[in-house]
């Protein structure tokens, strides 16, 4: 088995900013363990196979450094849950990073 425990799932939920309930933890831990166990089959593949991250057949796709119209501020802020003084208003932020 992949050995994903309930605590592991709780940790993943914290990392992913999901305030999951205890009932969900019970459900997810079994499911995620089973899924990870299944997909772990890729472990059979030899290490010397090179990875493929993308299937785009081109390189050096660049944009010219020329200014384009921006969004109007009122349009951008109209979809915000809260706005103040031309800015997005958010709850207090803890800590300076992470």
């Amino acid at each position: 088995m992949s050995d994903i425990t309930r605590d592991d799932v709780a940790h993943l939920a914290r990392l992913a900013r999901l305030a999951v309930s205890d009932a969900e933890l019970d459900m997810f831990s079994g499911q995620i363990d089973a899924i990870v166990d299944t997909v772990s089959r890729v472990g059979e593949i030899p290490d010397d196979v090179p990875p493929t991250a993308q299937v785009v057949p081109q390189t050096n796709v660049l944009r010219p450094d020329t200014e384009e119209p921006c969004l109007r501020r009122d349009v951008a802020l109209a979809e915000a849950p809260a706005a103040e003084e031309g800015r997005f208003r958010v709850p207090r932020i803890l800590g300076e990073e992470l």
Binding site: V9, L18, I32, R92
Partner: peptide, 29 residues
């Protein structure tokens, strides 16, 4: 009362369905 980080977690918990949460956690793992 809730800080930004907590509001993020509460919103994502309420706003995403089970399959989305499952896949986010599998991907995070």
């Amino acid at each position: 009362e809730h800080a930004a980080d907590e509001v993020m977690s509460l919103t994502r918990e309420a706003g995403f369905g089970a399959e989305v949460k499952r896949r986010i956690m599998i991907g995070t793992h």
